[in-house]
């Protein structure tokens, strides 16, 4: 019944060494409740990929487990065929909610400079060229004027853009964003989309968890559908279909009203 185009990698098949992110048979559980079960998926190099699924589908969990932020119960993960440890300089991650102390004595610029951690290496403190790079990243997300503002004194959407700018400063080949458009206005969303498209046009791979089903087709060229497992993955035209969406959302597309227990198949 389902289109063969969305065939997923076999759990036992080898990792795709050309893929920026390749996952096989990944199972992650909190306490004893599996949040992601036997996920196998490849992110295609140079793609702009959306991860779509209802609340609690395990989208954030998949990203965190891939980045070694939470333990995996089972499965293999590789970035260009290598463990995350060996590839971290090529990967940037913007979490769904940065769990930071907004009272921290740091300006927007200071936060973006943190993205240059790996680059600064043994040079202990930020040089002029680092600061220029960080300012450029802030300017790209429309935050150039607020670079010297303490982060707690920015609006929620502005704070989000600072964290996007920090990821930009990392100059990564693969950028993983967990709901970059949550809580931002239309103008900001358009600005962020432009930035992501620019990155993508420069050959960078983007993976973003995305909730707005209405804009998936216009922004992303590939989609991963998730509902506790990977339901389907592939080109948007082939995967973002009514029957696969129904399989993902259990027939109800009212994402926010999804009942607790109805999430997992």
């Amino acid at each position: 019944m389902l289109k063969r185009a969305s065939v997923l990698p076999e759990p036992t098949s080898p990792l795709d060494v050309s893929a920026p992110l390749s996952v096989r048979n990944l199972t992650v559980a909190y306490q004893d409740m599996p949040a992601v079960s036997a996920a196998s998926v490849d992110v295609q190099a140079g793609s702009l990929t959306a991860i779509v699924g209802p609340n609690g589908a395990g989208k954030s969990t998949l990203l965190k487990a891939a980045l070694d932020l939470i333990p995996r119960r089972e499965g293999r993960v590789a970035f260009w065929g290598r463990p995350f440890k060996a590839a971290r300089r090529r990967v940037a991650y913007v979490p769904q909610r940065a769990a930071v102390d907004w009272d921290f004595p740091a300006t927007a610029l200071d936060v973006v400079l943190m993205g240059l951690y790996a680059e600064m290496g043994l040079v202990r403190f930020a040089r002029r060229r680092h600061k220029e790079k960080a300012r450029a990243a802030l300017a790209r997300v429309g935050m150039g004027d607020l670079a010297d503002r303490q982060i707690g004194r920015l609006s929620g959407g502005q704070q989000q853009r600072v964290f996007l700018a920090r990821a930009l400063a990392q100059d990564a080949d693969l950028t993983l964003l967990d709901e970059p458009f949550a809580g931002v206005d239309a103008a900001t969303e358009a600005a962020i989309v432009d930035v992501l498209r620019d990155l993508n046009a420069a050959g960078r791979t983007i993976v973003a968890v995305h909730h707005d089903l209405g804009s998936v087709t216009s922004i992303f060229d590939r989609v991963i559908l998730m509902a506790g497992r990977v339901v389907a993955a592939g080109p948007t035209a082939e995967v973002f279909t009514p029957d696969l969406l129904e399989a993902t959302y259990g027939g109800r597309l009212a994402v926010e009203t999804f009942p607790e227990e109805g999430r997992r198949p």
């Binding site: 980045l67 932020l69 440890k85 769990a99 921290f104 943190m114 951690y117 790996a118």
Partner: peptide, 13 residues
Amino acid sequence: LGSFDPVFAATVG
């Protein structure tokens, strides 16, 4: 980094 954002600190090593 570890004081401000431990998650980010972990991802950048």
